[in-house]
């Protein structure tokens, strides 16, 4: 394996140290992301997901431990921390609330503008980011406040993508969107991931979503990494996930029950499409057999 693009070493974070409100949000977390990897971070509210991702681009400083970007500490100098913010793009929950410019174009250009890029380069990046997020050219000249909810969300994500980060982190990018809007956004993220070979960290509550999108799942519980592996490996711990208040995708649960009933179906089924294929395959096998 190559050097991880992003890595946390013995990362701990304590909120309100020295007061009665002391709270350990992260406890000795070792988390690494390879270049070009698509990782999903799951966990209940308060499990430390948000704290972890805010460490990844230097918005929070570790209480102890290190955060490495390309093997180098992001806190080694002020300049480095500032630069890493452009390399590790962070999209917060409900990012549409951070739109502020007169036009969508100007808002997307805010990040690249802060990077000190020349006008031409900014223009190229804004148009490309708009393309990735499926915003048409006429939208770019409109006020961000006139857009629909889904468009606003995409404009805000474009604002981070325009910085062309090598790691794109998204905190529940589909929260509060309808299924079509949610799917569009996930497709946009996947397009960016594939074309730019960027690593993506997706924080989500939807097991279906992470099972469909991510190559690797990391489960956080009370500030510690509880499970880490491929969707197949993680969802094999169905009971453990259940005890953490998470659970497995609905289809995976159905297929686990089918297997328990003695029917020969695969265990690694997460989506309705996969389930359809598995059921059809099972039926075909049954038909092929003489009764």
């Amino acid at each position: 394996m190559s050097v991880p693009i992003l890595e946390t070493v013995h990362l701990s974070h304590v909120y309100s140290e020295g007061t009665p409100f002391r709270h350990v949000a992260l406890d000795d977390v070792h988390f690494a992301v390879q270049p070009g990897e698509y990782v999903a971070v799951i966990g209940r509210t308060g499990s430390g997901k948000s704290t972890l991702i805010q460490h990844c681009n230097g918005l929070l400083k570790p209480t102890s431990g290190q955060v490495l970007f390309s093997g180098e500490d992001i806190w080694s100098s002020k300049e480095r921390t500032h630069q890493v913010r452009f390399q590790v793009g962070l999209v917060f929950q409900y990012p549409e609330y951070q739109l502020f410019e007169e036009t969508v174009y100007k808002d997307i250009a805010f990040g690249p503008g802060n990077m000190g890029l020349p006008e031409e380069e900014i223009r190229r990046r804004v148009l490309e980011a708009a393309h990735f997020t499926g915003l048409s050219d006429d939208v770019l000249e409109r006020s961000p406040f006139d857009l629909s909810g889904g468009q606003k969300r995409r404009a805000a994500i474009a604002g981070v993508i325009a910085m062309e980060p090598q790691v794109l982190i998204l905190d529940e990018p589909t929260a509060g969107l309808d299924p079509v809007g949610a799917k569009q956004i996930l497709d946009n993220i996947r397009a960016y991931h594939q074309e730019k070979k960027a690593a993506v960290i997706l924080v989500s509550h939807s097991m279906e979503e992470v099972a469909r999108e991510a190559q690797r799942l990391v489960v956080l519980r009370e500030g510690k990494i509880a499970l880490d592996g491929s969707p197949e490996e993680v969802f094999a711990h169905g009971d453990e996930l259940e005890s953490m208040g998470l659970g497995v995708p609905a289809m995976t649960a159905v297929f686990a029950r089918l297997r328990a009933m003695g029917i020969d179906v695969p265990a690694s089924v997460y989506t309705v499409e996969q389930a359809r294929d598995a059921v059809l395959a099972a039926l075909r096998r049954k038909e092929g057999r003489p009764c």
Binding site: F92, F100, F110
Partner: peptide, 26 residues
Amino acid sequence: IMSAQRARGADFETGSLVQRAKALVP
């Protein structure tokens, strides 16, 4: 909002008074 704009490279702490006032717009 401050964290979100900082993630896009906004700088609220350094610079002259005018620059800092401008930085408050986002």
